[in-house]
Write a protein that binds this DNA or RNA. Structure first.
Lengths: 343, 343
DNA sequence: TTGTACGCGTTATCAA
DNA sequence: TTGATAACGCGTACAA
């Protein structure tokens, strides 16, 4: 009671301020705000008016201290990646109107595990971890404290849910498509971290393994080139492929960003789809642009995001058994893949 | 003292747990964590070991309650917008290694004011509001409680800082370029909310006003068409332009996303840059792709993001006078703008 | 150098 | 239907 009338205009109004203004108890205000059971109409009205007058807003941090939050967190490993933004948009859209917020934790410069933990420290009500790294045990431990969906990987767990595309099926769609067009020298451009290792369950490794197996089955020699995530880097790698001996007649890029780099290299060398076919993965918006017209695989990013959000809501609703969701990839055949040149 | 030995494995360890484990006081642990003054080496060591053993992590929410946070928040009005992700990446990069985090609040479905307030409720240490809406007074009030940078608008204030591109200069670069190529029927495609009103200070309105003025000065008639933010919508609007009477020989799109829709429409109608020139704004990555090769304006999104982050740090460091930063736009002339067709 | 005690704003429990 | 009270985890005066 040192200073009940301090200029409350500067200090943002708290729940206690509202209670004082309305002449009721803090507990009552809290109930009104949360729409809890057991408040008279008169109470609701008076409190509402006080909130209005004081321009009061509940402090999320204080709520978080009590354990409950209405915010989900999503980690974003690459901000510029259109596929990921599609996923995030799907999740945000699914949560619209449910009373749940979303915050994004970019993990471009930190490890994506760090991003997950940063979200956890903020007491989010649930986490969507997009393509997190190689520490499934840690993820498993964290999932004891929060509902967690791992998106984009195939590391199954008893504790968290999983959303992914069927990368094996998708990669096979592409390779079969190219083989069907008569291509034999099909190169695969993938991220540097991907490995042809049956243990690996990240999307790019799965695509790589599937590609290599399909090639060998067809009696063709796999030809793998690696690059970093950027279009730049893919462009450089593609130039190496095109300028090297035994130039491939088709290049399967592990995602659309890489494919754009390949297309750039192809164009710069004065080649067209009649010379070198190009296929990508993700079906980002720009892929269907008639000037690019990229053949690619649609793995329904928006559906992934929607599903992940729904899974978190289900967990909050009491579900305890893990769920696994896999989208069915669809090949989008466009102009960048053509029959193999004869000879 | 009801249950000092409860299975702490499930409940995440708190600062008090660490203190107990290390046999010291909570205050001591707090000091060690923050690297505060006045801790012996032995203390630091013991506490460090206990933190390690218990896998302790400070709760951001609890810290926030005390008023201090090391997190900046950025609102993102459109997740798919490449220019915005460039800005965000710039900010994140600038904060790398400073000990400050970033969280993103998507405002796609809510008003962007709502996103700002959601960040404020989380007690972030500073906010970058990207292109917030028409309520500068409210923004001004909020800026009394947190360091705030308004990015992308030109609403100056005594309370918050501003980062923007020089939209007038940029728009003039484009229009002068097109006029210089001999174009007279230059249409402008802009967002529906933009208005030719000297009072308006949002980027799209500024570009629109500048365009219209430059056209009239040149004795040409402005022709303005509107669309929503999406490439889809821009595509439809462009088709209307191309199919209408008195087809323009050049289209100036207010940003690159819209320009992509225009390019699609142009391609679909069997036209090329020789028939209809197209220019955009932002210089997103894909614009320089040889298959698109879009003439556009680079307004240095990464520099904007970096500057905004730096401004927040400066505010935290004690600066109180507002700063205004404006990037110098540069025209990137590429293949989509050509001399006006004769006749 | 270390520890004690309190307060931040909210919600849940329980009593009135 | 309402209100008093006790946490939640952390940082910080202040005392030891």
């Amino acid at each position: 009671m040192t200073d009940g009338s301090r200029p409350a205009s500067l200090r943002a109004a708290t729940l206690a301020d509202v209670a004082r203004e309305a002449g009721v108890s803090p507990a009552a205000v809290s109930k009104v705000i949360r729409g809890a059971y057991g408040v008279s109409d008169g109470m609701r009205e008076r409190v509402g008016a006080a909130i209005e007058r004081l321009d009061y807003r509940p402090r999320t941090a204080a709520r978080a201290m009590r354990g409950t939050t209405t915010t989900f967190g999503i980690t974003v490993p690459q901000l510029g990646n259109e596929f990921l933004t599609t996923v995030v948009r799907g999740a945000v859209a699914a949560l619209d109107g449910t009373g749940f917020d979303v915050i994004l934790a970019p993990s471009e410069f930190a490890s994506s595990m760090h991003a997950v933990e940063s979200l956890l420290d903020r007491q989010v009500a649930g986490i969507v971890a997009i393509a997190p790294p190689s520490d499934p045990e840690r993820l498993d431990r964290l999932a004891r404290h929060v509902p967690l969906v791992q998106l984009g990987g195939h590391q199954y767990s008893e504790r968290f849910d999983t959303v992914a595309g069927d990368d094996r099926a998708g990669a096979r769609l592409v390779v079969d498509h190219l083989l069907g067009l008569g291509h034999r020298r099909i190169a695969h451009l993938t991220r540097a971290y991907a490995a042809e290792d049956e243990q690996r369950v990240d999307p790019h490794s799965l695509r790589l393994v599937t590609y290599a197996a399909a090639m060998r089955t067809a009696g063709a020699e796999p030809q793998v080139t690696q690059s970093e995530a950027s279009e730049e880097s893919a462009h450089a790698a593609a130039l190496r492929l095109l300028d090297g001996a035994d130039r491939p007649t088709a290049i399967f890029a592990a995602n659309d960003t890489l494919a754009l780099g390949v297309l750039r290299a192809v164009a710069e060398r004065g080649l067209t789809a009649a010379d070198v076919s190009v296929a990508g993965y993700d079906d980002i918006d720009i892929a269907r642009h008639p000037l690019l017209d990229l053949t690619t695989v649609d793995q329904r990013g928006d559906e992934m995001g929607r599903t992940a959000a729904t899974m978190l809501l289900e967990r909050l609703d009491g579900r305890t058994e893990p769920r696994r969701f896999c989208t069915d990839p669809r090949l989008r055949v466009r102009g960048t893949t053509r029959p193999a040149p004869v000879g």
